Structure formats: C-alpha cells, structure tokens
Amino acid sequence: MASQGTKRSYEQMETDGERQNATEIRASVGKMIDGIGRFYIQMCTELKLSDYEGRLIQNSLTIERMVLSAFDERRNKYLEEHPSAGKDPKKTGGPIYKRVDRKWMRELVLYDKEEIRRIWRQANNGDDATAGLTHMMIWHSNLNDTTYQRTRALVRTGMDPRMCSLMQGSTLPRRSGAAGAAVKGVGTMVMELIRMIKRGINDRNFWRGENGRKTRSAYERMCNILKGKFQTAAQRAMMDQVRESRNPGNAEIEDLIFLARSALILRGSVAHKSCLPACVYGPAVASGYDFEKEGYSLVGIDPFKLLQNSQVYSLIRPNENPAHKSQLVWMACNSAAFEDLRVLSFIRGTKVSPRGKLSTRGVQIASNENMDAMESSTLELRSRYWAIRTRSGGNTNQQRASAGQISVQPAFSVQRNLPFDKPTIMAAFTGNTEGRTSDMRAEIIRMMEGAKPEEMSFQGRGVFELSDERAANPIVPSFDMSNEGSYFFGDNAEEYDN
C-alpha cells in the first residue's frame, strides 16, 4: 500500500510504541512475548500442572481467558453494579484439565481477579502490559475465525453469508486497541457500523446529549479505520460520505453494504499476525530463551520457528480426527482463516481442507461434555516452508469459486491468482447506482469489472525454506488448481455463540 510509510507498523501498534527502528520493534515485541511466557509459567505453578498438562491447549485457553477477564475493567465495573446470582464479580476462573488415573478430569478453578492481575503485572515488570493482553485477544479471535462461520451475524446486519472472507476479527472485544483495529476485516468494521446506525434509528437519543457526542466521535473513528483499509480513492470518498452524514440511517447502511461487497474484489488491507497460545510461549521462556534479547516478529519467520520446536497437546472428542484438529489450530496460529487453501497447503506441506470436510468441533470443551471418553493427542503445528504475512489485500483475480465463501483475504505475501467468483459478486451490483453516491458507485463498479483474471497478485513473492531466515531465496510455489480455494466452501461450520 502506498501510504505504508505514514502508518505505524503493526509491531508498533502491538507494543504501543512511538516510531521505533526494526531492532527496537523486535525487542519490544519480544518483551511482550516474554511477559506472556513468564505469566503462563507462574500460572502453571499456581495450578500445580504437570509439564504435559501445561502444554494442553484447553488449559492455555482457560488461563488466557482468566487474565483477560481480570483486566476487563468495563465488564468488571458492570458486574459490580449489576450483581447477578451466583456470579462473584471479583473472581474469575474456568475449567482446568488434569490427568488422573490414566483419565482426563475437569476441575473448575476460581481465583481472585486481583490475584491474577498481581501475577500478570509481576510477570511483566510491574506494568499492565496491555500489548500482551491484546495479543491474547487476537489469538482467540484468530481461533474463532478458523472455527466458526459468522453466517447468522452477517444475515442479521443485512449482509450476504458468502462475504465471510471479510469477517476477520469479528469476535475481537471493543477494547483491543490499535492492534485489534489493524486485524479487523472490512466486513467486521461494516458490521460494527451498521449495528451502531441501527441503534440510532431505533433509539432517538442515541446521537443526542453528552453521551451522543461520545457516540458520534466513536462512529467517526470507526469510519476512519474502515476508510484506511480501502485502497481505492472511490471507496475512500464513499467512506467520507458515510462519516460526514448528519443523521446516519438506511442510506448509510446501503452504502456500507455496497462497500463491503466491493471489497470482495477491490480488497481492503487487513493486517495478519501470528499470535500463538500462551502454552507455546511459556515452555520456550522456561527453556531459557530470551525473546527480548533475541527479538521477535509476528509477521516473519519467528512464529514458524517457534511452532517448529513446540509440543502442544489437545483434548480430542471420541469421533474427532486429531489431524483435522491440528489443521484448525495451525490455521489459527498463522492467522489464515480466509487465505486461499492452495497457498496454505503449499506452505504447510500437507493438504489443507475446507472447514466442512474437517471432523472436528471447536477447541474448547463445553462444561456439560462427558470427560470419560476424552483422549488427548499432539497437535501437528509444523510447516514445510515459511512466508511473510501481508497486510495488503493483493490485486484481484477471477477463479472458480464456491457456493460458500466467494473470495479470499490473503494472509501471506505469496504470488498467486486470487480466487473470487466474479459473476456471483457482480450480480449483486445491478441497477442500484442512484442517489448521492452514484458517481462513486459507478466508478467502483467500473474498477471491479476491469479486474483481470490473468493478473498475478504479489508478483514474484515466494515462500522460503525454514533454514532461509533472511528470506534470501524465494520459492514461487505451484498450486494444484483442481483443489478448492475457499475454506468455508459450501460450508456447515458451527455458528459462533458468545
């Protein structure tokens, strides 16, 4: 993207840094990872977990959730003011799984939030270390993106479920800051804005008074975040219109849905970061690795190297396929839920299948599930090659597409044709070009129609051997075009429920 120079890199967003050079960025990201790792080690000690239990991804998720809940100030305040039966607002906890007599047992633990905050700050040299908290939120978000298709949420806001490739980060909490905003897809931002506008339509006082002023500035800020994701002048001009509207209503909703559809071809720039579970960072720190000293990046080879040398386990339900569970977590670790499966298959070195073909449910185990038949197995999170994460949407291309997802959002900077089903997408653009945004709409449609099938995206960008740390010898991959490109292809993934 041309304006790259004016933006802070995501590592800076990730670490609240002012302008830093590459070495400083690597050190501050490393410091953040160190903090998460030290916190995780301490929690495993508190909970008396064995090494194996500490490497269980379900335990990692519970521990991450506990610290996120302990620092969720708004919710904590709300819980104190609106006490609900049987919930102690000062405590947080969740299921911890232990191996007892050759069987997995679930144990519900409860801790004072104050105590968890103390352990977290102690692991982070006394700081609140917001960057580390956001990092864990993005890992949870990436896992949700890989596990669930947001059909219901899309339909509720009037969008087409086939636009799911635009929904990265749709389950990120509001408090995820600049680093969170960077990884949100165009569809996620559109959905947040539509929800806001709908509230304004239904509630006369939404934009009024002292609160209304705050609401208005939040609305304009979200519009600017979305505008910054678009790469064409016409899309940005249309966002200006939406932002400046005196009284946002149905016309703005129409414009936003139009823009979301246009992003299936004229893709937005959305950041991709490899955020790993805390149970990967903990053992690495415990083994003596100093992330701050060595430096770390979320968008280069580092996460690949770390996963190459990590042992992570997962509980497996009786009829689940461990290899499929591994694929789910591998995609989440690489922030690749909406990437082209052919690119992923090449990088991973084994075939990556669409969601609907995987015999696996989510990673988390519900409290009512029976533990008797639970097994555990090693997650295979290694890769054959590594590639640089991208934040450009890439230019655009036609490809055989599917009944489910009709476009992709690249996660890796790797040369390819970008699949999208042009006739299906263009069919949504018939007729409606009147109104105050008509010239911009016409211009956007013209650009979409001009998108050429034979153009290559990320020209000359390749993948790298894991021994090639400096990215000196790019390998331009070859793809098996007979395979499906979309992950949520004609899909039956479970729906995400809060």
Rank of each mutant, 00 (worst) to 15 (best):
M1H: 13
M1C: 11
Q4Y: 15
R8S: 00
R8H: 00
R8K: 00
R8Y: 00
Q20K: 02
N21V: 05
A22I: 01
A22T: 14
T23K: 05
T23P: 01
D34R: 07
D34N: 07
G35Y: 07
G35D: 06
I36W: 09
G37C: 09
G37A: 10
F39M: 15
F39C: 15
Y40W: 12
Y40H: 15
Y40N: 05
I41M: 13
T45K: 06
T45F: 06
L47H: 07
L47Y: 11
K48W: 03
D51T: 15
Y52R: 04
E53R: 08
G54D: 10
L56C: 12
I57T: 05
I57M: 08
N59K: 12
N59P: 04
S60A: 07
R65Y: 01
R65F: 08
L68G: 12
A70Y: 06
A70M: 02
E73M: 02
N76K: 08
L79M: 13
E80R: 02
E80D: 13
E81D: 13
H82V: 08
H82Q: 15
S84Q: 09
A85S: 12
D88G: 02
P89S: 13
T92F: 08
T92V: 02
G93H: 04
G93W: 11
I96Y: 11
R99Y: 12
V100W: 01
D101R: 08
E107F: 04
L110F: 09
L110W: 06
L110Q: 03
D112H: 12
E114S: 04
E114W: 14
E115T: 03
I116P: 03
I116N: 09
I116W: 05
R117W: 08
R118W: 10
I119K: 03
W120E: 11
Q122S: 05
N124S: 13
N125M: 13
D128Y: 11
A129I: 05
A129G: 15
T130A: 11
T130Y: 02
A131R: 02
T134L: 02
T134M: 09
T134Y: 12
H135R: 10
M136T: 05
M137N: 06
I138Y: 01
S141T: 10
N142S: 11
N142L: 07
D145I: 05
T146A: 15
T147Q: 12
Y148G: 05
Y148S: 05
T151S: 14
L154G: 01
V155P: 01
R156Q: 12
R156A: 07
G158W: 07
D160K: 02
P161D: 02
M167L: 15
M167Y: 09
Q168L: 06
G169C: 10
G169S: 04
T171E: 07
L172E: 03
R174T: 11
R175P: 02
R175Q: 01
G177L: 06
A178P: 13
A178R: 13
A179Y: 02
G180S: 07
V183W: 02
V186E: 05
G187A: 15
G187I: 10
G187E: 06
M189Q: 14
M191V: 11
M191Y: 13
R195W: 10
M196A: 12
G200E: 12
N202F: 11
N205L: 01
F206Y: 13
W207S: 03
R208D: 00
R208K: 14
G212I: 09
G212T: 08
R213Q: 08
R213E: 07
K214W: 12
K214M: 10
R216G: 05
E220N: 03
E220S: 09
E220K: 09
R221W: 10
R221D: 02
M222R: 01
C223V: 11
I225N: 13
L226P: 08
L226R: 07
K227G: 03
F230M: 05
Q231E: 08
Q231A: 13
T232C: 11
Q235A: 09
Q235W: 10
R236Q: 08
A237D: 04
M238H: 11
M239E: 04
M239T: 14
D240G: 12
E244M: 06
E244W: 02
E244N: 12
E244K: 11
S245V: 01
S245K: 01
R246T: 06
R246S: 08
P248T: 13
G249H: 07
A251K: 07
A251Q: 02
A251L: 15
E252G: 06
E254Q: 14
E254M: 13
D255F: 03
I257P: 00
R261W: 11
S262F: 09
A263S: 14
L264Q: 15
L264G: 06
I265K: 02
L266R: 09
R267S: 01
G268F: 07
G268Q: 06
S269F: 09
S269G: 11
V270K: 07
V270T: 13
H272Q: 14
K273R: 09
S274Y: 10
C275E: 07
L276W: 05
P277E: 04
P277S: 12
Y281G: 07
Y281H: 10
A284L: 11
V285W: 05
A286V: 10
A286Q: 12
S287R: 15
Y289D: 07
E292R: 12
E292K: 10
K293F: 02
K293D: 06
E294D: 12
G295K: 06
Y296F: 12
S297P: 10
L298A: 01
V299P: 06
V299D: 05
D302H: 14
L306W: 03
L306H: 04
L306A: 12
L307A: 10
Q308L: 14
S310P: 02
S310N: 04
S310L: 02
Q311S: 15
V312Q: 10
V312P: 00
Y313W: 11
L315Y: 05
R317Q: 04
P318Q: 11
P318W: 04
E320F: 08
E320Y: 02
N321K: 15
P322A: 14
A323M: 09
A323W: 00
K325W: 11
S326A: 07
L328C: 02
W330Y: 10
W330A: 05
M331G: 04
A336C: 08
F338Y: 10
L341E: 09
V343Y: 02
V343E: 10
R348C: 04
R348V: 07
K351I: 07
V352H: 01
V352R: 02
P354T: 09
P354L: 08
G356L: 06
L358Y: 08
L358A: 06
T360S: 14
G362W: 07
Q364R: 00
I365Y: 01
S367L: 02
N368V: 11
N368R: 04
E369S: 08
N370G: 02
D372L: 08
D372P: 05
E375S: 12
S377R: 14
S377M: 15
T378C: 07
E380A: 05
E380V: 09
L381R: 02
R382T: 00
Y385E: 01
I388S: 03
T390H: 05
T390S: 13
G393P: 12
N395M: 05
T396G: 05
N397D: 02
R400D: 02
G404F: 11
Q405R: 05
I406T: 14
I406Q: 12
S407P: 00
A411Q: 00
S413E: 01
V414E: 01
R416P: 01
R416V: 01
N417L: 15
N417M: 06
N417T: 12
T424G: 00
T424Y: 01
I425P: 00
T430H: 07
G431K: 03
G435S: 06
T437V: 02
T437F: 06
R441G: 03
M447V: 12
A451F: 14
A451D: 05
A451R: 14
K452P: 13
P453W: 15
E454D: 04
E454H: 06
S457F: 01
F458K: 01
R461N: 04
R461F: 02
R461T: 08
G462V: 02
V463Q: 02
V463A: 11
V463N: 07
E465T: 00
L466F: 14
A472Y: 10
V476H: 00
P477K: 00
P477L: 03
F479Q: 09
D480Q: 12
D480Y: 13
N483E: 01
G485I: 00
Y487F: 12
G490K: 05
G490Y: 04
D491R: 05
A493V: 11
Y496R: 03
D497T: 13
N498S: 10
